[in-house]
Design a protein around this nucleic acid. Structure first.
Lengths: 149, 149
DNA sequence: ATAACTGCAAAACGTTTGCGTGTAT
DNA sequence: ATACACGCAAACGTTTTGCAGTTAT
């Protein structure tokens, strides 16, 4: 066997699909518990990670806060309100004119942040030859080297 | 009195200015301790927050990892290597052509993320009338509302 | 003199994980 | 039948905080 379709997995994914507020893991827990009252937070995290690995959701790390989850996979960016934590979808945030448009709609954009993630030349090189691409392995390496001397 | 220039604050800022690797708080602790061996991690965090409030540094939250600190305030973006954790400066990441340029330099860009942060219309409205703009207040409100029912 | 700051240690926070039990296949 | 997933609770890593003592003004 490999990869079961459990009630908890289905309920978590359904809750995320139904959500329009980019919920946190704990918000999802509350919603899943309406159907399955005994679900634990650990299970929600495990299933969210499973869905992420399957490419069925995106994890949003916006600022220092909690992770937010999004099952809408079409290309879009996000606006995070530092006041109340609301997350709004934004189309084409990289394009010029977005700032003006949001301002016209009442938003106050304090920072527009572009974060590029991937592999630096050195790591890209070793990926080709070694086991760096295996996920568990990669994570270990991140842990080891993330904070050198 | 208000806002003292302590050895710990100066040493922390100096260490960050001297750094070219976008260090974490713990990396900064190690470097500050070369001069002041008894400095604690709590003090480093407190002083980093003080410097941030003064606008003398930027905090980088790149993915799920630790916060990285940057005293270079000129407009630039960052590339975060998911392999080794290296952070590289990138000029004009929002502009077209950046992706191709980085690829030519050996980088593998897996995700380009634009995060907009600020205030949503509702919070922007209440800022004008209430005490939301007072920092301690704002943080409390974020805590309260970040994860609604 | 005194308010701001420190070191220390404990708490807080979001997230992960070990273990024994349960369940989908 | 059995491997996968669960609930629970403890552990984890990063950051914050309470407190009693110290230091810059």
């Amino acid at each position: 066997m490999r990869e079961r379709t459990t009630q908890q997995l289905v309920a978590t994914y359904d809750a995320l699909i139904a959500a329009c507020d980019h919920p946190t893991a704990e918000q999802l827990l509350k919603r899943v518990r309406r159907q399955l009252p005994r679900v634990s937070l650990g299970t929600v995290y495990r299933n969210l990670e499973k869905l992420r690995a399957q490419g069925r959701l995106r994890v949003l790390h916006l600022g220092r806060g909690v992770a937010r989850y999004d099952a809408v996979l079409t290309n879009h960016d996000h606006f995070f309100c530092e006041g109340c934590g609301v997350v709004a979808d934004v189309e084409g945030a990289g394009a010029s004119g977005t700032f003006a448009r949001l301002s016209g709609e009442g938003y106050v954009v304090r920072t527009a942040r572009v974060s590029l993630l991937g592999l630096c030349p050195s790591c890209a090189r070793s990926t080709r030859t070694s086991s760096l691409s295996r996920r568990s392995n990669r994570r270990r390496i991140v842990r080891e080297r993330r904070r050198p001397g």
